[in-house]
Computed example of a mutant assay.
Amino acid sequence: MTASTPLTIDVISDVMCPWCYIGKRRLESALKSVPDVMVEVRWHPFQLDDTLPAEGKDRSQYLSDKFGGRERAQAVYSQISQAGKQEGIPFAFDRIQTSPNTLDSHRLILWSKADGLQNEVVERLFKAYFIDGEDLTQPGTLVQIAEDAGMEADLVEQLLETDSDLEKTKKQIGQAHEMGVTGVPFFIIDGRFAVAGAEKPETIAAAIMHAEATKAGEQA
């Protein structure tokens, strides 16, 4: 592998998926452990629940429909909270009032790619939802995230009022399903190796090193 050719890591995720937030942290830890490998991380859309209306659903109702109520949900989320703490994520699930349809969030991530700000936008979306309890269905929330990340907020505000890239985003989600992706996060390293789920940093790092070594071998 030449120094000018970064290893690509395609991350398929959904911003309402807590394990995707954990997976992002573990990927970052993995990358720190392999500093000599040049990597380009690219984010791709997925929807855990594409039946949610555009305005989202009341969180209590969502939890009732999915888990049979908050008590059963809390048992699930307590495990996620513990995993989050280990990665420095202070999940605040009780602050979430609306379970969002994430199509607009994914459009924002798509638009941020042109500015090289995908990672920043993804991070801010996760924080807004899981820590601050913000409503990701509100255009104002997404515009503020875009502005804070360094994007052109006025342009984002205008685009959100249209269907720009909506079908493209849906198509990309469909492509993930066609690839056999049924759960996220899902990491595709160098277009050749897949890591499914929020695996430990050392597992992701090992896959990265293997991809780097085998690609170098191919070019030798």
Rank of each mutant, 00 (worst) to 15 (best):
Q175T: 10
L142D: 10
D163G: 15
D165T: 03
A149M: 03
T141W: 09
G140T: 12
I109R: 01
N119K: 10
E123D: 12
L125W: 06
E152S: 11
Y129G: 05
Q138S: 14
K113R: 10
L155F: 14
G174D: 09
A149F: 07
A153C: 08
G174P: 00
Q144R: 05
D135E: 07
F186S: 06
V181F: 07
P139H: 15
V121D: 01
A114S: 15
L159M: 06
L136G: 12
E147N: 09
F130C: 12
I173R: 01
G174M: 05
D154C: 10
W111L: 05
T182I: 03
D190C: 15
Q118L: 11
E123K: 04
E167G: 13
F130R: 10
I173G: 02
D163C: 15
E157Q: 15
E161K: 08
S112H: 09
S164F: 13
E120F: 11
L155C: 14
T137Y: 09
G133C: 10
T162C: 01
T182Q: 14
P139E: 12
A149N: 00
Q158V: 08
K127F: 14
Q175K: 09
F186W: 08
Q158E: 14
Q118F: 14
E178N: 06
Q172W: 08
M179D: 13
S112F: 12
E152G: 10
V121C: 06
I109G: 00
T169L: 13
I145D: 00
N119T: 15
V184E: 04
T137N: 11
K171T: 09
V143G: 05
L159Q: 02
L142Y: 14
R107K: 04
Q118I: 09
D132L: 11
L142S: 14
E157Y: 02
A149L: 02
E157I: 06
P139V: 10
G116W: 07
I188S: 10
K168D: 15
K168N: 12
K170V: 10
D154Y: 01
G140C: 06
E161I: 04
K171D: 11
M179Q: 09
G133W: 12
S112I: 08
P139M: 15
V121N: 01
E120Y: 08
M151K: 00
F187D: 03
G150S: 08
